[in-house]
């Protein structure tokens, strides 16, 4: 099945371009990239690298939201899986560490999926449970302190590089490709969109909606686990209090910026990742700009508002109308 190219992607890519340009204006060396110890080094690489955790989360989140669900627990799942990875890193081999952390993410996803699909609890409430409890679980694992490790294999997943690209970026690209293959390479994507659009009709049409619901929450849990591993590997330790804190909101924002409706239905994985990059490009730009930190959130809010307004169909129509009026007024003169 051919990959549907996002028709509505222009406004997101435009927004990303404008933000990158603005970053270049506040910091002229923004696009400079050099090689440092065998890896690419520059602000643009930072945007990709720092954006990786939210991008990973948004890959899972976009599927959940397409099913008219939401997963608030991803930040807490990050903390749990990061804590598990960091506490096992020095005593076990990397495959064991990864299996344990990803397994925990899978279990968390199963739990969410069970609550939503089998017990029929509203997704926002169902995942809120793990959002609150999950951070507590992570704190239990780390006993409230920052667990550090020295294992170079795990550290590679956060600070290493493959062909010059930071490992988190490569992992994100890999996860994105895998998800695209599974979802768009088969009829699964269509089924997700159908279920999100009208669950009852889809069930009547023979789609296993419950199974698909559980599957997307599990996938979201796995993505969160990977993001948690990356976050821990990055700081060579697990900070249960802060790892992934509020990142569920960034992931939802990334999905929404990417044009996927919270009411389910059509979705785009690529644009959700672009949404994550938009958020990170903005964060990096704020850090480079030298604005006082008190203005960070205001700047962020204004930019997000602008990006979302640009996508609003009504406002788009109104602006187009204005444009037509304007062009009539200006082109009308000489003709006379």
């Amino acid at each position: 099945m051919a990959m549907r190219f996002p028709r509505l992607g222009t406004s997101q890519l435009l927004a990303l371009g404008v933000i990158l340009l603005a970053n270049w204006m506040v910091s002229p060396q923004f696009f400079d990239i050099r090689v440092q110890d065998g890896r690419l080094f520059g602000s643009l690489i930072d945007v990709l690298n720092r954006g990786a955790p939210v991008a990973l989360l948004s890959i899972g989140m976009v599927l959940v939201i397409a099913m008219r669900g939401i997963d608030l627990s991803v930040g807490a799942v990050m903390a749990i899986c990061g804590a598990i990875a960091a506490s096992l890193a020095d005593s076990h081999a990397l495959p064991v560490v990864l299996a344990a952390a990803l397994g925990a993410g899978l279990l968390c996803g199963l739990w969410n999926g069970f609550l939503v699909a089998v017990l029929g609890i509203q997704p926002i409430v169902a995942t809120l449970i793990l959002m609150v409890a999950g951070r507590g679980i992570a704190q239990l694992i780390t006993e409230g302190r920052i667990v550090t490790f020295t294992s170079p294999q795990l550290a590679f997943l956060g600070g290493g590089s493959v062909l010059g690209l930071p490992t988190p970026v490569v992992l994100t690209l890999g996860m994105m490709a895998l998800t695209l293959l599974v979802v768009r390479g088969t009829a699964l994507g269509l089924m997700i969109e159908a279920t999100g659009g009208n669950p009852r009709a889809s069930a009547l049409a023979g789609i296993g909606t419950k199974l698909i619901t559980v599957a997307v929450y599990v996938w979201s849990g796995l993505c969160a686990a990977l993001a948690g591993i990356v976050a821990s590997a990055d700081i060579l330790g697990a900070d249960a209090n802060n790892a992934g804190l509020w990142l569920e909101l960034d992931a939802i924002l990334a999905v929404v910026i990417g044009g996927t409706s919270l009411f389910g239905g059509r979705f785009s994985i690529l644009l959700a990742v672009v949404g994550a990059l938009i958020i990170q490009a903005m964060n990096t730009g704020i850090l480079l700009s030298g604005f006082p930190p008190e203005t960070n959130l205001v700047v962020k809010a204004v930019v997000v508002l602008a990006v979302l307004l640009a996508q609003s169909p009504r406002l788009g129509g109104a602006l187009a109308g204005l444009g037509v009026l304007f062009s009539r007024a200006t082109s009308g003169g000489p003709r006379r």
């Binding site: 910091s27 060396q29 520059g42 602000s43 930072d46 720092r50 920052i146 976050a231 990055d234 700081i235 330790g237 900070d239 802060n242 790892a243 964060n283 990096t284 850090l287 480079l288 030298g290 006082p292 930190p293 960070n296």
Partner: peptide
């Protein structure tokens, strides 16, 4: 330069990365 790192390791690292780039 002065920015907030929210008292955390991860943010401290991220902010320092951008400081390094912004200061040659």
């Amino acid at each position: 330069r002065s920015q907030t790192g929210d008292f955390t390791r991860a943010k401290g690292k991220e902010v320092m990365e951008s400081f390094i780039k912004a200061e040659g």
